[in-house]
Structure formats: C-alpha cells, structure tokens
Amino acid sequence: MSASTAPAAPSVHRRALITWLAVYPTITLALSLLGSVLGGLALPLETLFLTAIVVPLAVYVIVPALMKANAHLTRR
C-alpha cells in the first residue's frame, strides 16, 4: 500500500450533510438575490431557472470544495 492512497469516501450520511450544506445556502442566496426578478413567473418556471443556477454551482463548485475540506478535516 502506497502513501498516496486516497482516503475512504465519507459515509452516505456525511455526503448527505455535505450536499445539504451546499444546496440550502445556495438556494437561499439565489432566492434572496433573484426572488424579485423571478417572483412574477409561474412556480415551475421559477423553479426551472433557480435549479439551472443552483445545481451546476453546487455540483461543480461547492460540493467538491466541501468534500475537499471534509477530507482535510478527517485526515487530522
């Protein structure tokens, strides 16, 4: 076994928490910034635009950063 072995993946419960920590604040921020702009739209359209912004941001930016931070914290 080499020293560069990747750490074990976090448990499903920790991954769920990390995902929630990425999604909830992002949705809250997006709603507070875009709520007045999107507020006049029908709910399905508002949800479409909101998720089109939040999902890529969470998947490609926030969750990986939180997973990296989690790996750093669990290595200690």
Rank of each mutant, 00 (worst) to 15 (best):
P7C: 12
P7V: 11
P7E: 11
A8H: 03
A8V: 13
A8P: 05
A8Q: 13
A9K: 14
S11I: 04
S11Q: 04
S11V: 05
V12R: 13
H13Q: 12
H13I: 04
R15N: 12
R15A: 08
A16N: 08
A16C: 02
L17W: 10
L17M: 11
L17K: 12
L17D: 12
I18P: 01
I18A: 12
I18Y: 04
I18Q: 06
I18M: 10
T19M: 07
W20E: 14
W20P: 00
L21Y: 03
A22F: 05
A22N: 07
V23R: 04
P25T: 04
P25S: 05
P25M: 07
T26F: 02
I27M: 06
I27K: 01
I27T: 08
T28C: 06
T28V: 07
T28S: 13
L29H: 02
L29N: 03
L29Y: 08
L29W: 09
A30Q: 02
A30T: 14
L31T: 03
L31W: 05
L31D: 09
S32R: 11
S32W: 12
L33W: 06
L33P: 00
L33Q: 12
L34D: 04
L34E: 03
L34A: 14
L34P: 01
L34K: 02
L34I: 01
L34Y: 09
L34T: 13
G35D: 06
G35I: 05
G35F: 04
S36G: 10
S36W: 13
S36Y: 04
V37E: 09
V37Q: 13
V37A: 14
L38S: 01
L38R: 01
L38H: 01
G39I: 08
G39Q: 07
G39R: 09
G39H: 06
G40P: 02
L41E: 10
L41Q: 14
A42F: 09
L43I: 09
L43R: 06
L43G: 00
L43C: 00
L43A: 13
P44S: 10
P44L: 08
P44M: 10
P44T: 11
P44D: 08
P44W: 09
L45V: 07
L45M: 13
L45E: 05
L45I: 05
E46R: 15
T47M: 13
T47Q: 11
L48T: 14
L48I: 04
F49L: 15
F49R: 00
F49C: 05
F49M: 08
L50H: 06
L50C: 11
L50P: 04
T51Q: 14
T51W: 13
T51H: 08
A52E: 04
A52P: 02
A52D: 03
I53W: 11
V54L: 06
V54N: 02
V54K: 01
V55I: 15
V55H: 02
V55M: 12
P56L: 12
P56M: 11
P56N: 13
P56G: 10
L57S: 12
A58N: 06
A58D: 09
V59Q: 14
V59P: 00
Y60N: 10
V61T: 13
V61Y: 11
V61K: 06
I62S: 00
